[in-house]
């Protein structure tokens, strides 16, 4: 997501709310309708833990080489975000080991935040639905 105004597709995952650059989301389909590669559990890869929940959808996120299927667990919303509302990851947090896939924060209110994620930078999971296949 570039600076300035833009759209973010957010997922209200039970672990935390995360979002991606909406312009790169090709489509969202039901989990049962998806028959391609095992979807990436973005929340689990980011460190949110594994939550088994069948009520999920698959978000196809465009990368340079392919459409990456992301597991979207929770309500999905399209939100307009201006550049001022986005905060970068503090250098100290990054140096202390925070995932490179975390691009920044959109603060929604006291103690409420959406984590902006770069799905292509998510590292392989320790365990998740992906490994339960």
């Amino acid at each position: 997501m570039t600076r300035g105004e833009g759209w973010m597709m957010t997922v209200a995952d039970p672990a935390f709310r995360w979002g991606v650059d909406a312009s790169r989301v090709e489509r969202v389909i039901g989990r049962a309708e998806w028959s391609g590669a095992m979807p990436v559990d973005g929340a689990a890869r980011l460190g949110g833990g594994v939550i088994r929940d069948e009520a999920t959808r698959v978000m196809l996120f465009a990368t340079e080489t392919e459409a990456l299927p992301l597991l979207a667990r929770g309500e999905i919303a399209l939100e307009r975000v201006d550049g001022e509302a986005r905060s970068p990851v503090p250098e100290l947090l990054r140096r202390a080991g925070c995932s490179d896939a975390l691009l920044g924060f959109v603060f929604r209110g006291p103690g409420e935040v959406t984590f902006l994620v770069a799905p292509e930078l998510l590292t392989p999971p320790v365990t998740s639905e992906e490994s339960h296949a």
Partner: peptide, 18 residues
């Protein structure tokens, strides 16, 4: 913040910045 360390476990919002 998921994936953050024990020492630096998260953020607060301060003047619109993390």
């Amino acid at each position: 913040v998921p994936s953050a360390s024990e020492l630096i476990p998260g953020v607060i919002a301060h003047r619109g910045r993390a």
